[in-house]
Design a protein around this nucleic acid. Sequence first.
DNA 1: TGCCAGGCCGGGT
DNA 2: ACCCGGCATGGC
Length: 227
Amino acid sequence: MRRAYEHLFKAFGPQHWWPGETREEIIVGAVLTQNTAWKNVEKAIANLKRARAIDFHRIAAMTPSELAELIRPAGYFNVKARRLQSVCRFFVERCGGNLDTLRSIETGALREELLAVHGVGRETADSILLYALDRPVFVIDAYTLRIGARRGWFPEGTTYEAARSFFERSLGASSAQGGGASSPQALVALYNEYHALLVRAGNRHCKPRPRCEACPLRPAGPCGTDA
DNA sequence: TGCCAGGCCGGGT
DNA sequence: ACCCGGCATGGC
């Protein structure tokens, strides 16, 4: 578990996640990447940037078809236009678009609020919490579930919440030295990097990477030098 | 050519 | 509490 992290980090190095310049961009990207290749999301974000629309107020005020046209490359554009607007309206109403205001809200409560927003499921909520709001929440996704099950960390068919509590229990209980409890900031950094590495390891469409024969987490598919 | 990508919702059993 | 169909573009 912990060793797998060390191994992945040695093989791949820091992933510098989330790929986005601002917290608003991260949140927008979290919605756009739902069941969609990141490559396509990049095009949509480029369109939004060109329109100076990486902005909660701007997106909230757009017409649905106007927004849908900008995010077309990300797929599901009609669905996502609606979801994006509901998310942006949430942040506008909740904190006037100023995310710093949310600092005083407890993580669990904030998670519930996010889950109540249309278009925000567990993974999207947790991605926002971890990558945009610096909360110590471990993000689960399809890769994480596949890799974890194959490694025997938890059984096949494990639910999202069960997998999340597995990672948070396993990593949160001890620090890197194996000693006492970690600081929240340290957990945020660890969860951030670990999830990014799992996606990198599990993604068949990832860029070529250094050969690593011993890596137990390599996907079966063609990828880089592993094909 | 076909399959799939960093899900989520709504309706059905 | 699960299970399923729908949503859509672009890359390999």
